[in-house]
Design a binder for these strands. Structure first.
Lengths: 204, 204
DNA sequence: GTGATATGACTCTGGGGTAAGTTACCACCG
DNA sequence: CGGTGGTAACTTACCCCAGAGTCATATCAC
């Protein structure tokens, strides 16, 4: 029977995969795993569902591919930043600056790794754990430095502080999503002002 | 045909409703709306699915009932705390102390109002908005005070700082969920230590 | 022609929602 | 104080559909 839209459109697999991952990451990042449907992703990419399955195997495979691409991007950049000389609060600010620039066009990416509706078993669990650990280790490192300088090295305190730090990043990313007109630079300036307000920085 | 488990078990409606809401709030709060199934809630409460529907009408009705009960509890307590004299960081600490005591046995409750998989239309949207606004207004009030004292009253700055503050509360609640052995009092002491580490409090 | 790109039209399962029936409690009547 | 009808509390067994996943086929580049 006639299938008027079939046949290649001349888009190579790797390009198409990348395009699908763009759409899928946004859906997963904003709606969450459970609330995202593969059909919606396919429609968003302007293709049909079977092509998505042909390239990624399953919904979980698609999510995993998003995690791998996004996680590598995030973790690599954060590890690069962590090699700087800054410590304590300053290191945190450098990290934020890097994240703002990196994620300006995909602000939802951060949330992929904090989705409570994601499956907690199998390769997805592993992938989330892997990248969350890489990111978390850097956060932990920075927080440990800061806490040690302040004379506190209680492991639970460090753990809680790390969680708070990641929560701060999370809430800034969410706020940014809701304020699309804000540039990365404006975000950074804002963070510096907030910091100044908190610490009564005389330069404010 | 035989229905060996049918018939009343002598539990009055209001008691049963409350029990269902306990289970449902925990599921919704930990798994999120989309990833929670009514059957699982019913099983958790030791009853069958139709009873849940008989009492709450729909999955959304059930969620709304959770929101109403939890939201009233949260907002009332936070409004009570806000009547105190404390300002700035101190007010924040008082709020945390109150929340820790209030939520010691239902730490997931906070997350009901920050679930991205919840429907964004209809009465649920209204209910979330209502309580999030009540809570958010208090947070905004406290943050505005703090920022004004520091000489910054830019509305976007205040908005972002409020978001960060709510994010801090959120991350502390999440950390608490993952550390069930920690008491409310221990949490409060920990927060004071973290604050001291940040601000170099000489009393530390 | 061959293989990569692509799709229409299916199947099937999980979970929201329902119809109809069962049992226990209780108020009221005799 | 026993019967008895009404209602509240409950269940089994089902319907139904959205969405995950598949199959057979069609088109195009080379």
């Amino acid at each position: 029977m006639a299938r008027p839209n079939a046949g290649t459109k001349g888009v190579p697999r790797l390009d198409r995969e990348s395009q699908i991952l763009d759409v899928a990451s946004e859906h997963f990042g904003t709606q969450g795993f459970a609330a995202t449907s593969v059909a919606a992703v396919a429609a968003g990419a302007g293709i049909s569902k079977p092509l998505v399955y042909s390239y990624f195997g399953s919904k979980e495979g698609l999510y995993e591919a998003c995690l791998d691409r996004g996680g590598a991007l995030l973790a690599d950049e954060m590890e690069r930043i962590a090699q700087g000389e800054a410590v304590g609060i300053e290191r945190g600010m450098h990290t934020l600056a890097g994240l703002f620039v990196l994620l300006e066009d995909q602000r939802y990416l951060w949330r992929l790794f904090f989705d409570t509706t994601a499956p907690t078993t199998g390769p997805i669990r592993d992938s989330i754990t892997h990248y969350a650990d890489r990111i978390g280790r850097l956060a932990d490192e920075g927080v440990t430095e800061l806490m040690t300088l302040a004379g506190n090295s209680d492991p639970l305190d460090v753990s809680a502080m790390t969680s708070v730090w990641l929560g701060i990043v999370d809430s800034l990313m969410n706020w940014w999503v809701e304020h699309p007109d804000q540039t990365a630079d404006q975000m950074m300036q804002r963070c510096l002002r907030l910091l100044a307000a908190l610490f009564g920085d005389p330069s404010a």
